[in-house]
Amino acid sequence: MEINPNMKPLRPGRIISWVAAGLIVLLIGGNSFASVEYGHIGLYKTFGKLNNNMLSPGIHFKIPFFQSVIQVNTQVTKAETDTSASSKDLQPVSTHVAVNYSVNKASAYNLMNNIGGNFDTVIINPATQEIVKEVTAKYPAEDLITRRDLVAGEISELLTTRLAKYDLVVNDINIVNFKFSEAFNQSIEAKQVAQQQALKAENDLRRIEIEAKQKIAQAQAEAESLRLKKQEVTAELIQLKQIEVQEKALEKWNGVLPTVTGGATPFVDIQALTQK
């Protein structure tokens, strides 16, 4: 390989400049684009000021170093809240509620500009706690258990109205758990035991009544059968039965008359049989 004697050698300073220029280009290029994930919308933030131009999922250009893109989740999200309250009959109740909500896409700018990204702790949780306390106070403790769907429906209706002011959509409400005092739990258990015992006693009484009716019906049937049998007994039937008995006795007779003295009548009327 021949070396051109006229070619000037590269200076270290020039090499460093080229490397620095390349790094700057890469840095600027890397900060010129931002991606918005699926299920989100993006909003430009320039020098700390939010822009109402909403970005769909995908890659978008931005001014390097001076502009950023914040993402707002528009998918259904769950917020869980614990609330302590009192029922209508002044029983302490601890409630764990799960709220499924989503952000209204068209109003995402207003939500982020007026409240910010922590709207779940600023808006949703306090509103849920307040409404749960309000609704819980309308029902006796036992009704909170037996009418759980009605209670959840009322909480959902009130919370939907409240969060709509902040462009938040309530998709569903779930009362995960009601927790009462130990004394109340024991009283509920005792009541259930008493109800079960009363039900058993009622079933036993019903069974006894049915068995008694069955015995009466059986006795009546037997009495009716006996009455009908008595109606069937006539003088001719009695005489016929007597003849049948005498015939059976004659069949078994060996021809020897019994040697019995006295005025007793022979047990078979020979004359009557011979005249037939």
Rank of each mutant, 00 (worst) to 15 (best):
G13L: 10
Q231Y: 07
G42C: 06
K252M: 13
K215V: 15
I188N: 11
K241L: 13
F33M: 14
P57E: 01
Q192C: 00
M7W: 04
N110C: 03
G22M: 13
P12T: 15
Q239C: 05
K248M: 11
T259W: 04
K8P: 11
T74V: 15
V193Y: 00
G29Y: 08
L43E: 03
A212H: 09
L55W: 02
Q197A: 12
I243M: 05
P5L: 13
Y139S: 05
K138F: 08
A20Q: 07
G42E: 01
A164S: 13
L144E: 03
A198H: 01
D149H: 04
K229L: 09
F267N: 02
Y109C: 00
V170F: 03
V256H: 01
P140R: 02
E189V: 15
Q71V: 01
L26I: 15
P140I: 14
D89L: 07
E251K: 06
L226S: 00
Y139E: 02
I16M: 07
G29M: 08
R207E: 14
R227W: 05
M54A: 03
N118R: 12
I238W: 03
K191I: 10
Y139V: 11
V135D: 06
F119H: 12
K179T: 15
K241C: 06
P64H: 07
N73R: 06
I208G: 05
W18A: 12
L228S: 09
G153V: 13
M112Q: 11
V135C: 09
N177M: 10
Y44K: 00
K49R: 08
T234S: 10
V132E: 10
T146D: 07
S102P: 02
R227L: 14
E37F: 04
A272S: 12
G263I: 12
E157F: 11
S35N: 10
T274R: 13
V170Y: 00
T74M: 01
A264R: 10
G117Y: 06
N177T: 15
I63H: 04
A249I: 12
D143L: 12
N185M: 09
V169Q: 07
V93C: 08
T265Q: 08
Q91G: 08
L111A: 08
S84R: 11
T128C: 02
A264L: 13
Q67N: 09
Q195W: 05
A108W: 00
N177W: 01
N52E: 04
G48C: 08
I145N: 06
E209K: 07
T265G: 08
